[in-house]
């Protein structure tokens, strides 16, 4: 039996063909999870990411065009609302500048460098969105060559986007805070109460574990608390839209100011290193 007839032979046996195919696919998953495929994945992902980047620009323009058409009728009333809000906010800005000046003077006196002043950012374009419905992640056009590392927070001026979970040479993948696996230690801006932000299937955010006695009202701003060391403190996460009471704690629906489906440009905080707490894990006793 020559080699081509042997190949035809085992492929004609459906059961063998099926199990061989499944075995190869299973081996791919195991190798990918073990990181053995990373160099090959990087080689193939590089051109795909480059083309995706170009397509993403068109996709976002297309989406924005459709959105503009749909919202044309409401634009006028929104414009009036925004003008009123702008006037109000300008007054607040003047007030806050004064507060900021006072703060800067006091900080200088105490020789205290705040985290905000020490933050360093790298801008990155979103080049693709995860098409697997079970995972919410995006791919950025910056990688290890640009100094990106796993764990770095990703944000926009509107608030926190997520954190880097995979890094290639010139691309990186970010797990969004709206993913089900994402947990962020959070704090209410006004009452300083602590809680935890978790992504929801709907793409919204849920604030949980807020103690029952604490004041939690719609409109409250949620910030990162810095607890756990995965994110720096005081990054904006979103705003409380509704509050409910669980048995032992309060919960709140939180709306991020970011539209995660139309993200175009983000900032990677390059000088933040997540704190590794694994040293405090209890060693296995072997019992």
């Amino acid at each position: 039996m020559n080699s081509s007839s042997f190949r035809r032979g085992w492929r004609s046996n459906r059961a063998v063909f099926f199990f061989v195919s499944l075995f190869v696919a299973g081996a791919l998953i195991m190798a990918s999870r073990a990181g053995l495929l990373t160099p090959i994945e990087n080689v193939f992902a590089t051109p795909l990411n480059a083309i995706s980047g170009a397509f993403q620009q068109f996709a976002l323009r297309f989406s924005a065009g459709l959105g503009d058409l749909a919202e044309f009728q409401t634009l006028q009333s929104r414009n009036e609302e925004l003008e009123a809000a702008l006037a109000r906010l300008q007054a607040e800005v003047v007030e806050l500048r004064e507060v900021n000046n006072d703060y800067a003077r006091l900080t200088q006196l105490l020789d205290y460098v705040t985290g905000t002043q020490a933050q360093e950012f790298l801008t990155a374009d979103v080049i693709s969105v995860d098409q697997t419905s079970a995972i919410r992640s995006i791919t950025l056009n910056r990688g290890s060559r640009d100094g990106v590392a796993i764990g770095m927070p990703v944000l926009t001026p509107q608030g926190l986007v997520g954190r880097v979970i995979e890094v290639g040479a010139n691309a990186s993948r970010v797990l969004l805070i709206t993913d089900l696996s994402s947990f962020v230690s959070a704090r209410l801006q006004t009452s300083r109460s602590e809680g935890s932000i978790n992504g929801q299937v709907s793409g919204n955010l849920l604030l949980t574990f807020v103690p029952l006695g604490e004041t939690l009202t719609p409109g409250d701003i949620i910030l990162t608390s810095g607890l756990g060391g995965n994110f720096p403190p005081d990054l904006v996460i979103g705003q409380v839209t509704s509050v409910s009471i669980a048995e032992l704690y309060q919960e709140a629906q939180v709306r991020s100011l970011i539209n995660f489906d139309t993200l175009e440009i983000v900032l990677i905080m390059t000088n933040f290193q997540p704190i590794d707490l694994s040293a405090f894990d209890e060693p296995e006793t072997g019992n």
Binding site: A25, I29, S32, L48, S128
Partner: peptide, 14 residues
């Protein structure tokens, strides 16, 4: 599909 996703390569293949 998996190269453009956070899932391990092979996830969609099975």
């Amino acid at each position: 599909a998996d190269l453009l996703s956070a899932a391990p390569t092979g996830t969609s293949v099975i």
